[in-house]
């Protein structure tokens, strides 16, 4: 074995710069540990780690650029066409007399077994559907609203018509289904004489209730532009004209917000008299 050649001499200053960088890195690491130990501080921890890794990076980069040669090497490419005599050899190895590839009948049977297994393995995927065997289309068509369901406020209080002052929007939920994703609605009081199209679900002296879910992609239509009677969706800026039965007037939504028919019960509370006039939210294939 040959003796090791001596280490190549470094250009002056390079060694020192590398060592300084690594020292800075170590200081950053210690700083991180100390910050953590003293109770933690997101910004300082981030800065310390950044210093630690930047020191490492700078030191390694100088090392890689100044102390070892950059570029200047060439490697040959064997190409990708296999040598001509390899191909027949491989083919021969694959098609030897005892090669499984040549037993067509057995292969067909094997294929059948594997296909059956593959298909059978898909069956447990059905368990990903809801355990109660709910039907998606029916679930999409129905909401917790129905005849006699009381309207609750976000605080869980039943709502009277007087609780909806002119010019404000009140979020409402069905009693017994406040958590359902497709149930949120809003009540608003408008001047009936400004209706350009009568609300399809009717109104109580200008009080109308509509689904809160945008018919574009289902975001809650939260922004009420008071004077204009428009509801604006914050997601893609569809706007709905409440005076025209919540018709979409701008933006990407194409359908009206479904209305909720309501009436006042004997105790003076608002109750739905049916479900929404159409399935709420985004469109889907089976939507009538």
């Amino acid at each position: 074995m040959s003796r090791r050649p001596p280490v190549a001499p470094a250009p002056s200053g390079v060694n020192r710069r590398i060592i300084l960088s690594f020292l800075a890195s170590a200081a950053g690491a210690i700083g991180f540990a100390v910050t953590y130990g003293l109770g933690g501080h997101t910004q300082w921890e981030g800065v310390c780690l950044a210093v630690a890794f930047a020191g490492l990076a700078i030191g390694l980069a100088i090392w890689g650029r100044r102390l070892v040669p950059v570029g200047g090497y060439v490697e040959e490419h064997e190409g990708f066409t296999p040598p001509p005599d390899e191909k027949p050899l491989t083919a021969a190895a694959l098609s030897a007399p005892d090669s499984p590839i040549r037993r067509r009948g057995l292969l067909a049977a094997l294929g059948l077994a594997l296909t059956a297994l593959g298909v059978a393995a898909l069956f447990p995927l059905r368990s990903l559907l809801p355990w109660d065997r709910a039907r998606p289309v029916r679930a999409r068509m129905e909401t917790p609203w129905g005849p006699g369901v009381r309207l609750l406020t976000a605080g869980g209080q039943p709502l009277r018509p007087g609780d909806v002052p002119a010019g404000t929007v009140v979020g409402v939920f069905p009693e017994g289904g406040t958590d359902a994703g497709d149930a949120p609605a809003f009540a608003v009081r408008l001047q009936p004489e400004r209706f350009t199209r009568p609300p399809s679900a009717g109104h109580l002296d200008g009080l109308v209730v509509y689904s809160l879910l945008c018919t574009h992609a289902g975001c809650p239509v939260r922004l009420y532009l008071k004077g204009t009677g428009r509801m604006l969706c914050p997601c893609h800026q569809s706007s709905f004209d409440l005076f025209a039965d919540a018709e979409p007037v701008a933006g990407p939504a194409a359908r009206r917000l479904p209305g909720l028919p309501v009436a006042v019960d004997a105790d003076g509370y608002l109750r739905a008299t049916g479900d929404f006039t159409a399935p709420p939210g985004a469109g889907f294939w089976n939507r009538p």
């Binding site: 976000a154 979020g171 939920f173 958590d179 359902a180 994703g181 497709d182 149930a183 949120p184 809160l212 975001c219 809650p220 239509v221 939260r222 922004l223 969706c233 914050p234 997601c235």
Partner: peptide, 8 residues
Amino acid sequence: PDQATSPA
């Protein structure tokens, strides 16, 4: 389900 932020 009934809340949204803006801008989103």
